[in-house]
Simulated assay, not measured.
Amino acid sequence: MSTLYLVATPIGNLEDISARALRVLREVHLIAAEDTRHTGKLLKHFEIETPLTSYFEHNKLSKLDNILAKLAEGDVALVSDAGTPALNDPGFELVRAALAARHQVSPVPGPSAPLAALVASGLPTDRFLYLGYLGRKTTERHAQIAAVSALPYTLIFLETPHRLLDALVDLQAELGDRSLAVARELTKLHEEIFRGRISEAAAHFDEFPPKGEITLVVDGANPDAGQWDPARVRESLKVGLARGDSVSALSREISAKSGWKRREIYRLASEMQAEFGNQE
């Protein structure tokens, strides 16, 4: 049987591609690429003439049979635009289909933005949780973050420049002012890794709007931290009330993760709601 190779490609610096990756890309019968124009530039730089076919989010299911047919004739490589394929990119379905057809699946390790950001963050690396992109809407982000707020693992998210500030606000509301690293443009000319508190990152990127791909690495929950302090409860209530959540829903949600009794939060939320009403 043939082999489907999952080939990691540079996330910015072309020198990061491995000798094995270049050999595999030259020897396979076909390269399935997320963006053939982008990968075509990479292949041209290294004088690789292997045929390309597109394989991206919106055609990943319709192209399965075609790629499997090619795999029956010889080895195929899967690549993403940058980094390790099938990690937050199309590929899972193809890997599963190749295995079901009894082909070999072999990783060709290399660049990965989440791992590069993690090891350079200064935060614990022994246990971590990769969660991909945060939701586009505030309600989605709050739900995602709340679901992992009590976990002791270092958290890794991807984010876009235009949503970064909103994401930082939501992270602080749900997690408190934890330590984090904001890594952008990794391995490129303008690489930046900001390390500090969430509030400090928000102030920094408000003053210096970010560009490029962004990875967020956030400290996990401290199991010995115990109950939230009043300031954190008030901040989380403030955000929830501002987005229109009911006092009852906020009390139930925050009580579950703060260590506070629900009736205490309900009383505080009602007082804050009245304060907001008087300010309008």
Rank of each mutant, 00 (worst) to 15 (best):
F208Q: 14
K44V: 00
A101Y: 01
Q273W: 13
A146H: 03
Y130M: 13
K137Y: 02
A203W: 01
E47T: 15
H45N: 11
E174Y: 02
S255L: 03
L250T: 08
A173P: 00
D16P: 07
L22H: 09
G135M: 10
G135Y: 03
L241I: 01
A274H: 12
D229G: 07
V105I: 01
P209A: 09
D65E: 14
S121L: 09
P223I: 11
A19Q: 11
I214E: 03
R20H: 11
D166G: 15
E185S: 09
T50H: 08
G212D: 03
L4A: 09
D75G: 09
R23E: 12
P230G: 13
K44H: 10
S236L: 04
R195F: 14
L237I: 12
R262W: 12
D81Y: 09
D224L: 13
P124T: 01
A183P: 03
V79N: 10
D224R: 04
L68C: 01
G132N: 10
R163C: 02
L30F: 14
L151E: 11
I265M: 04
V7L: 07
S149D: 06
A269Q: 07
G40M: 02
N222T: 07
I11N: 12
V76R: 02
H162G: 00
Q279C: 06
E200Q: 14
A69S: 11
L4I: 05
A8R: 02
V76Q: 04
I67N: 02
A181R: 07
P210L: 08
P223H: 05
E275H: 10
A150N: 02
D177I: 11
L4R: 01
P161F: 08
V119I: 15
K211L: 11
P111L: 05
S248N: 13
V218C: 03
H58D: 13
H162D: 07
R252T: 14
Y133V: 05
L43I: 02
R102H: 13
T160G: 14
